[in-house]
Measured scan of single mutants.
Amino acid sequence: TFELKGKVGKVVKIAEDHYLVESEGDKWIAYSDEKLSLGDRVMVVDVDGLKLKVKRIP
């Protein structure tokens, strides 16, 4: 299986209740415990079905 946990991506869209993150050339629906901005670099900390939980990284 394709393992996304630990992968790095970038926030490419902000929606009302989720983010769109591009990682490894694909776009994924993501959510975070912190507020993210367009262009933020993020790391995948968990995968919930087809949704990614991400956190901001420097």
Score class of each variant (00 low, 15 high):
residue 35 K to V: 09
residue 24 E to D: 05
residue 9 G to V: 15
residue 35 K to I: 09
residue 51 K to G: 13
residue 56 R to Y: 13
residue 8 V to W: 03
residue 1 T to L: 14
residue 31 Y to W: 12
residue 1 T to R: 15
residue 30 A to T: 14
residue 33 D to H: 08
residue 21 V to F: 15
residue 5 K to I: 15
residue 14 I to S: 07
residue 1 T to F: 15
residue 52 L to F: 02
residue 15 A to N: 08
residue 22 E to L: 10
residue 6 G to W: 02
residue 16 E to H: 09
residue 37 S to W: 07
residue 23 S to C: 15
residue 6 G to Y: 01
residue 15 A to H: 12
residue 3 E to G: 01
residue 52 L to K: 01
residue 4 L to G: 15
residue 35 K to T: 10
residue 14 I to Q: 06
residue 10 K to G: 09
residue 24 E to M: 05
residue 19 Y to G: 01
residue 35 K to S: 08
residue 54 V to N: 00
residue 50 L to K: 06
residue 51 K to C: 14
residue 6 G to P: 00
residue 46 D to M: 03
residue 32 S to T: 07
residue 27 K to P: 04
residue 3 E to T: 00
residue 58 P to A: 06
residue 7 K to I: 04
residue 30 A to Y: 00
residue 8 V to F: 04
residue 42 V to S: 01
residue 42 V to I: 13
residue 39 G to T: 06
residue 6 G to S: 01
residue 21 V to C: 06
residue 13 K to I: 09
residue 13 K to G: 10
residue 37 S to Q: 09
residue 3 E to A: 01
residue 9 G to I: 02
residue 11 V to H: 00
residue 51 K to F: 14
residue 1 T to K: 15
residue 48 D to T: 08
residue 36 L to I: 06
residue 42 V to T: 04
residue 56 R to P: 12
residue 46 D to I: 03
residue 52 L to M: 03
residue 33 D to Y: 07
residue 18 H to W: 10
residue 30 A to V: 13
residue 34 E to T: 07
residue 49 G to K: 09
residue 29 I to Q: 09
residue 41 R to M: 12
residue 20 L to F: 10
residue 9 G to H: 01
residue 4 L to M: 14
residue 55 K to W: 05
residue 42 V to E: 00
residue 24 E to S: 04
residue 2 F to N: 15
residue 43 M to P: 00
residue 18 H to K: 11
residue 28 W to Q: 02
residue 48 D to Y: 12
residue 46 D to N: 03
residue 46 D to G: 03
residue 28 W to Y: 14
residue 40 D to N: 08
residue 2 F to E: 15
residue 53 K to D: 13
residue 23 S to Q: 05
residue 7 K to A: 14
residue 55 K to S: 14
residue 45 V to G: 03
residue 30 A to W: 01
residue 55 K to D: 14
residue 40 D to T: 11
residue 27 K to G: 05
residue 41 R to D: 14
residue 29 I to L: 11
residue 40 D to H: 07
residue 29 I to R: 09
residue 16 E to R: 11
residue 3 E to K: 01
residue 10 K to H: 11
residue 2 F to I: 15
residue 57 I to K: 04
residue 15 A to L: 11
residue 9 G to C: 15
residue 33 D to P: 10
residue 21 V to E: 00
residue 50 L to T: 07
residue 43 M to H: 05
residue 8 V to A: 05
residue 14 I to P: 03
residue 30 A to H: 00
residue 11 V to D: 00
residue 30 A to F: 01
residue 12 V to S: 07
residue 24 E to T: 04
residue 26 D to E: 09
residue 36 L to Q: 03
residue 51 K to W: 13
residue 58 P to G: 05
residue 45 V to E: 14
residue 15 A to E: 06
residue 37 S to T: 10
residue 28 W to K: 01
residue 32 S to Y: 02
residue 43 M to Q: 04
residue 58 P to T: 06
residue 19 Y to K: 01
residue 42 V to F: 03
residue 43 M to Y: 04
residue 14 I to G: 06
residue 22 E to H: 10
residue 11 V to F: 00
residue 1 T to Y: 15
residue 54 V to F: 02
residue 1 T to H: 15
residue 11 V to A: 02
residue 18 H to C: 13
residue 42 V to A: 06
residue 6 G to F: 02
residue 9 G to Y: 01
residue 9 G to K: 00
residue 48 D to L: 11
residue 30 A to K: 00
residue 12 V to M: 07
residue 30 A to N: 00
residue 35 K to A: 10
residue 16 E to K: 10
residue 28 W to T: 02
residue 51 K to P: 02
residue 12 V to K: 06
residue 16 E to Y: 12
residue 36 L to G: 00
